[in-house]
Design a protein around this nucleic acid. Structure first.
Lengths: 116, 116
DNA sequence: TTGTTATATAACATATATATTATATAACAG
DNA sequence: CTGTTATATAATATATATGTTATATAACAA
């Protein structure tokens, strides 16, 4: 049940699924409640929810005939962990740019200078 | 050229593309350098790079006949911004859980008690 | 039990993604 | 100019995703 990055990013790539997550960010909701605002069939929503569940982005509990859904932390955690690599690299690039700009402002050390 | 979330998440959903990004997290690289470790045709890599560029995840400069690629901040920024909604909601849920556990440990205020 | 409600699954059509090979373009080396 | 290298694009095959309708399941209400 541990989410896989392919699955999780792909789940997040669909606007309907992101809208479902946005709705669940407010509060837990049943399948019918989630389906209601969309001009889409109930089976389509059920499928989207299954994708979100397999992505580790939602959890479902059983309440009689209803399956209330709520946000799950695992998917976001997996994504965040992976993105950290990019964030770190981007921050490093940014620091290098800062350094270059600083060297342009004040004269660089210029260790191996050729004759002008 | 502003990345769209569908596009950016979909770009991140492919393992080849995430491997390319991981490679670029180390340093800038040309298309051939990026293609070399993969058992995949050069046109396939070119297409993946185009997807990453349209997702705001990489930038390309022109260097003679080469097109060195490097990471771009826009895609990650867009993703991060959207994910903040989920992070906030999940943190709120977690706080509520903390509260429930605290109430279970020490007796709750119990404002409207019925006769036992 | 019988009808109704909530949800899931199956079968299917269509769209989109991804890879391949062949080919175009454009810079470079000679 | 000519051949080579780096990259992009076109044509095409195949796989995957997404939606629809029809139907199954399972709890509830009467």
């Amino acid at each position: 049940m541990t989410p896989n990055l392919d699955t999780t990013f792909a789940a997040l790539a669909d606007p309907t699924r992101r809208a479902l997550l946005a709705r669940l960010a407010r509060e837990e909701a049943t399948v019918m409640e989630l389906a209601q605002p969309f001009s889409m069939s109930q089976p389509a929503i059920s499928r989207h929810l299954k994708v979100l569940e397999e992505a580790g982005l939602i959890l479902r509990r059983v309440d009689g005939t209803r399956r209330p859904c709520r946000l799950a932390p695992d998917g976001v955690a997996a994504v965040d962990q992976w993105l950290d690599m990019l964030r770190t690299a981007l921050a490093r690039n940014y620091d290098r740019l800062d350094q270059v700009l600083a060297e342009m402002a004040s004269p660089p050390k210029n260790p191996k200078r050729k004759a002008p």
